[in-house]
């Protein structure tokens, strides 16, 4: 944990640059001018209003889920199952939205968001309770629960929740009262990014200024000492897990309501997993995770453009994303190894 939280900020731009250079070499090997490819990537991420909107739209679920995972990291637990919490959030939002299709938009959207938050939190609660009361590794249970969630959503979409008008595994399209309002006329940008920003700022404030946030940080740094000092460690762990699940569920709501307009089987191209990396790159801080999500969103939006316009596979972008994080971790680890732990300096 210390490695993750204590990352040297300076290492991040360096890691990004090195990862981009390695990505450039890979692009060159595939026979494309890397500068041209990265030009296309920049163009695709920021070049037009719609492209900028795409970057922000991609960043939104990553930021929401990433902030939740960062909170978990700070408390010393690992929520690897945000993917499942996200899918169930999307599912709950779509079902609620279709049930309330004739209600006023504000009521429908609120109900959808609440349903999604509850679904995500409930799914996370299973893993949290298993960990706190039975000592089951949350890493394993959340992964297993993600499988269950994926198949549950697939079952619902192929069965009871399927739009009878189509054989495709998806719900009925939401009516306009179930769609998130747009933010930037002329683009597909919706208000989700504002929600994500508010969540990130609130989480930042919580960690810095609230007793609960202080207790999360203390627990993450040394749960034994925290417990010994009377901190409600179990309750803290359960609450960060539920919060993380709730934020993943909220992200599911935003994707359903703001992007797809219905629940589909493949709602997530792996947001729940990418967000783990976003949280790592964001040094487990909410604002850091938000910035990392913007970076990943730009890479993702720009990568699609790079693929379509210069024919470089978008997987290069994935490589750059993960290389960045690996390099940050390696850099931090190398520094930690080279400079022996301060524990040894104890008697000075």
């Amino acid at each position: 944990m210390r490695v993750i939280v204590g990352t040297d900020i300076a290492s991040i731009p360096i890691a990004i640059i090195i990862a981009l250079v390695i990505g450039g070499v890979l692009i060159a090997l595939s026979g494309v001018n890397p500068f041209e490819a990265y030009g296309a990537l920049l163009q695709g991420a920021f070049g037009t209003p719609q492209h900028l909107a795409d970057t922000l739209i991609e960043a939104t679920p990553l930021a929401l889920i990433g902030v939740g995972i960062a909170l978990c990291f700070r408390a010393g637990v690992f929520n690897v199952g945000a993917e499942g919490q996200f899918l169930l959030g999307g599912m709950a939002a779509a079902i609620t939205g279709n049930l309330l299709s004739t209600a006023p938009a504000i009521a429908t959207l609120l109900a959808m968001a609440i349903a999604a938050v509850l679904a995500g939190a409930a799914w996370a609660a299973i893993a949290a309770l298993l960990k706190v009361y039975l000592g089951a590794s949350e890493t394993l249970t959340t992964i297993m629960l993600t499988y269950v969630a994926t198949y549950l959503v697939s079952y619902l979409l192929n069965g009871p929740a399927r739009d009878p008008a189509t054989p495709i595994a998806q719900t009925q399209p939401l009516t306009t009262s179930g769609l998130l309002p747009g933010l930037w006329p002329g683009t597909t940008l919706h208000v989700g990014i504002v929600i994500a920003l508010i969540v990130a700022v609130a989480a930042h404030y919580f960690l810095r200024r609230r007793v609960g946030g202080f207790q999360i940080v203390a627990t993450g740094l040394n749960p034994v000492a925290a417990r010994s000092a009377g901190l409600p460690v179990r309750r803290i762990l359960i609450s960060v897990f539920l919060t993380s699940g709730a934020l993943a569920g909220l992200a599911g709501f935003i994707q359903v309501s703001g992007v797809q307009g219905k629940m589909i089987v493949n709602l997530s191209p792996g947001y729940g997993y990418t967000a783990i990396v976003v949280a790592l790159l964001g040094r487990s801080t909410p604002l850091g995770a938000f910035l990392a999500a913007l970076f990943f969103g730009a890479l993702s939006a720009g990568g699609a453009s790079m693929e379509t316009s210069v024919g470089v596979p978008a997987s290069v972008v994935t490589i750059v994303q993960y290389l960045t994080v690996l390099l940050v971790i390696a850099y931090t680890a190398a520094r930690t190894l080279r400079r022996p732990s301060r524990v040894a300096d104890e008697e000075e």
């Binding site: 210390r2 202080f214 034994v224 000492a225 925290a226």
Partner: peptide, 22 residues
């Protein structure tokens, strides 16, 4: 003190307030 007593990566002030922070 290092394992069960204090949280080494927090400040003196934070450790002193730990038990009664609420």
């Amino acid at each position: 003190r290092q394992r069960t007593g204090l949280i080494l990566d927090l400040s003196i002030a934070e450790n002193l307030a730990m038990e009664t922070v609420g």
